[in-house]
Amino acid sequence: MQFLPVLRRGGAPLHLWIGRTYVAGCLVGGAAGLVLAAGSHAGPIASTGFGVGGAAWIATTLLGWRAATQGRLAEHRRWMIRSWALTLAAVTLRLYLPLVAILDLPFIPAYRAISFLAWAPNLLLAEVWLRRRGR
């Protein structure tokens, strides 16, 4: 809903309150992700993948929030598109996990790969979309 122009016009209060809630959720989720990444049973590769994803989620969200508070709205939109792509990592992970079982892949090596594949392609697609849209 946040990407609908009608909700953003003139600093609409609904957009502001949904945005504040989203930022708070991303910060809590990102911090929890960092804590959980450190304890991954799949080893340091998975810890790194999930940790970098969580740190990127926090960073993009904070950069987007800061741009909004400073009135740099075009920059805000770009950062929040990146943040949303990272938010969807939880969905992407849950799409990959059944594939591991369906393809009968060894779980731990696949999970290590998924720790990066859950968020990196999402972020890459967001970047490609932003660059094409910026032309």
Rank of each mutant, 00 (worst) to 15 (best):
L123F: 12
L14I: 14
A68T: 04
L103V: 11
P106V: 06
N122R: 07
F107W: 11
W79L: 11
P109R: 14
R131T: 02
R132F: 02
R133Y: 01
W129M: 09
G39M: 08
C26L: 10
A89L: 09
P5G: 06
L86S: 06
S83C: 10
I18M: 13
L95Q: 05
G19Y: 09
L27H: 12
R8E: 08
A85I: 05
L36H: 03
R112I: 04
R8A: 14
A12V: 00
T21L: 15
A56W: 02
P106K: 08
A68S: 11
T21F: 13
G19I: 05
S47V: 01
F116P: 04
V6D: 10
V35P: 02
L93Q: 11
L63R: 13
I58R: 04
A37V: 04
E127G: 06
Y111R: 13
Q2A: 14
V6C: 06
G64I: 07
M80K: 02
R66I: 11
G29V: 01
I81M: 13
A12F: 07
E127A: 06
R77D: 13
A126Y: 10
P13T: 13
F3Q: 12
N122F: 06
C26I: 07
V6Y: 05
D104L: 09
A118W: 02
S40G: 04
W84S: 14
T21H: 00
D104A: 14
L88Q: 14
A12T: 05
G25P: 02
W57Q: 12
L93D: 04
I18R: 04
I114F: 01
Q70N: 14
L124C: 10
A74K: 15
G49R: 12
R112N: 15
A85C: 05
L14K: 07
R135C: 01
S40R: 11
L125Y: 08
A89Y: 11
V100P: 05
L95G: 15
S115L: 08
R8L: 03
A126V: 01
G54D: 02
R82D: 09
M80D: 08
L4Q: 09
R82A: 08
A55I: 06
P44W: 13
P106H: 07
E127C: 08
V35W: 10
P98W: 15
A126R: 05
L124V: 12
D104P: 01
H41T: 03
W119Q: 11
A113R: 05
V23N: 07
L34Q: 00
P5N: 06
V128Q: 03
I58P: 05
R131Y: 01
L4S: 11
F50G: 00
E127Q: 13
G11Y: 06
I58A: 10
D104F: 05
F50E: 00
I114K: 03
T61H: 06
W119Y: 10
G33L: 02
A24Y: 07
A32F: 00
A67S: 15
A113D: 12
L125P: 00
W79P: 03
S115R: 10
A31W: 07
P13C: 12
G10I: 06
P5W: 07
A126H: 10
G19M: 06
R66S: 15
R9Y: 11
R66G: 11
V52Q: 01
S47K: 00
L7V: 06
G71N: 07
A101P: 08
W119K: 11
Y111M: 14
D104R: 15
L88I: 09
G53I: 08
